[in-house]
């Protein structure tokens, strides 16, 4: 219990390193969610709107991708952005850009699949109405995303939650560099290793609260949708 009290004191006392780490984590996670959604939401909508051969395979593939361990994604992106990799000249490794790239890829299949399954639960009359009015696919996509905006919001929340809680990508691509790429989860790993459990606990509390808030929000969203 003393550890918990000390953890709270660190948070409330405005420990600069801890708050920097929280800020950076939010920055990385929000950016990654944004880029991931930019690609994932239209992909999910396309899967929903199109009736092409192999759509089932594509959906199954996306679902399978959700289960890829974060370190595998990290490893894959590492080989791309390492000095000897094809994107080495972009200087992304051990920089925020690398973390954001990796986390975007991590959340992409999740957001795609969530958007797809969410839209499927939407009242089918919306899509039928768009079809009967002869709307183009582009029009249908924008209209269906507008009607399914809560579904999209939920997909974003879940993607964000996945990103904020992951450690593999942030560690491998960011390198856990103090005040540059250190995120809450990598800092927890470090502080626990150093035996500084109060610091780890302080960040753990923040991650836990965020996870709770995100889950509550996404459940509220579902109820409204």
């Amino acid at each position: 219990m003393t550890a918990l009290r000390e953890a709270m004191a660190l948070l409330l006392g405005g420990d600069a390193d801890i708050w920097w780490t929280i800020g950076a984590t939010l920055r990385f996670s929000l950016s990654a969610t944004f880029f991931s959604a930019l690609l994932g939401v239209p992909s999910g909508a396309l899967l929903f709107l199109s009736r092409f051969r192999g759509r089932r395979i594509a959906v199954a593939f996306m679902n399978a991708c959700m289960a890829i361990p974060t370190v595998v994604i990290g490893l894959f992106v590492y080989s791309l952005i390492s000095r000897s990799g094809p994107l080495g000249s972009l200087n992304l490794l051990y920089n925020p850009g690398g973390v954001i790239l990796g986390q975007s890829l991590l959340a992409f299949p999740l957001i795609t699949a969530m958007a797809y399954t969410g839209l499927q639960k939407l009242d089918p009359r919306y899509h039928e109405t768009l079809l009967t009015l002869g709307a183009s696919r582009r029009r249908r996509m924008s209209a269906i995303l507008r009607e399914g905006r809560l579904v999209v919001l939920q997909a974003l929340l879940i993607g964000f939650g996945r990103i904020i809680g992951e450690v593999g990508v942030a560690m491998m691509l960011g390198g856990n560099i103090h005040r540059q790429t250190r995120t809450m989860t990598t800092a927890i790993a470090l502080d626990a290793g150093k035996g500084e459990f109060e610091r780890a606990l302080a960040l753990g509390l923040v991650v836990l609260s965020l996870a709770l808030i995100i889950n509550l929000l996404s459940q509220l969203v579902v109820r409204d949708a």
Binding site: M171, G175, N176, I177, H178, R179, Q180, A187, L190
Partner: peptide, 14 residues
Amino acid sequence: FLSAGRGMAEVLFM
């Protein structure tokens, strides 16, 4: 100056 907060092997690779 990069304070990595990681193990020796990881720091060597970095």
